[in-house]
Nucleic acid binder design. Sequence first.
DNA 1: TCGGCCGTAGTACCGCGGTACCACCCCCAC
DNA 2: GTGGGGGTGGTACCGCGGTACTACGGCCGA
Lengths: 222, 222
Amino acid sequence: MTTVLIVDDQDLQRFGFRVLLESVPETEVVGEAAHGAEAVRKAAELRPDVVLMDIRMPGMDGIEATRRIVAAGGRSRVLVLTTFDLDEYAHAALRAGASGFLLKDARPEELLAGIRAVAAGDAVVAPALTRRLLDEYAHHLPGRPKDPAEDPRLTSLTNREREILVAIGKGWTNGEIAARLVLSESTVKTHVGRVLAKIGARDRIQAVILSYDLGLARPQAD
Amino acid sequence: MTTVLIVDDQDLQRFGFRVLLESVPETEVVGEAAHGAEAVRKAAELRPDVVLMDIRMPGMDGIEATRRIVAAGGRSRVLVLTTFDLDEYAHAALRAGASGFLLKDARPEELLAGIRAVAAGDAVVAPALTRRLLDEYAHHLPGRPKDPAEDPRLTSLTNREREILVAIGKGWTNGEIAARLVLSESTVKTHVGRVLAKIGARDRIQAVILSYDLGLARPQAD
DNA sequence: TCGGCCGTAGTACCGCGGTACCACCCCCAC
DNA sequence: GTGGGGGTGGTACCGCGGTACTACGGCCGA
């Protein structure tokens, strides 16, 4: 038996979900909430297996509520429902820790299958959204199309020059690079000049940008 | 009617899929392939709506075959099937442009629903894999835990200053910023100075780095 | 109405960054 | 050996970037 908490600011919508969920034996609606704050409170109190969460609500929205419920550490999993297809909030919801994302116009059996999957610890994303998710995934993720080391602009660099490029990427001045690599500033300048020429950057700023775009420089370094 | 090309190196496996797909009226198996190269050739020749692709195959594997079929630009969509749960190849397959990813032990109706969704231009990912996908998504993707706009260093910036910071993040010189925002270079300098002071950066390079670390600047810009 | 913030603009100054050119050493390949 | 690439170092020069300070118009809230 899967226990469910329904969160939606519209009475009618909640009623519809309740009727649907109570029409099958495997789910039980243990509570309802009309806004984010109430959802967080009831989730803590009722400890439902699944929280069916609407995103757009007055007051605390579904995103923030999701974040707090997930952060609370209980075993409740949040299944987010939205009316429209991938809006701004969808990404935020996923980052907030939602276990699923479905459209409100999903067919009843899809919704039930979603609840079942989420309760089992899996995750579900509406097909229409999955495509977008994959597109983004394919673009930004780890080990992007070309491995940093493979980029044609980097292959001509010598090892020392690569070190220099990394140092530039950290935002160090020529003086700092000289100090840390134990070199004279003149030498650093020579190297920097060659690096810029080879990678086709007009100044070290372009080099920094290239480092990040290629994944050579990693966030939170230094 | 959805036309399907079955790609798998095991005869028995292909046979199983064929029987399943031919048991319903909505799908038609128009061909089979036993390895990557044959899959690429037949996809080009038969132009199926959906290619059911096994990953592990001798010779050219499913990843490379997927990449080529997608790159060919036809309207065939690739639905990848794998025996195990998220292995190394799964990510590669998604990056290669697959429209879906299911486990071979999926129930028949799940597989058919997947084919239907993929044919319709949507994407599907097996629930068990979706969880992993979301976890990764939540971690490294756009706007990490802290939303860019939320960072204390950015909140004190005025709108204009934020624009300037974005421009700096693109690697533009003061002169370029002046030209693109239709300002005098003096004004730009004034803004840049204030931005650097507010975000605690000693020069524009640190500002660029901050932009990337905060996710304010996105790869491949400009 | 007045003060303050924002956006705009200017002048003046200094230093770092980038370029051009040259020089030396080491080591490896021819 | 002799050449050449990689690494190191120097000098000289110019321009952009950054700072300090000033100034003014517009708009809003006290």
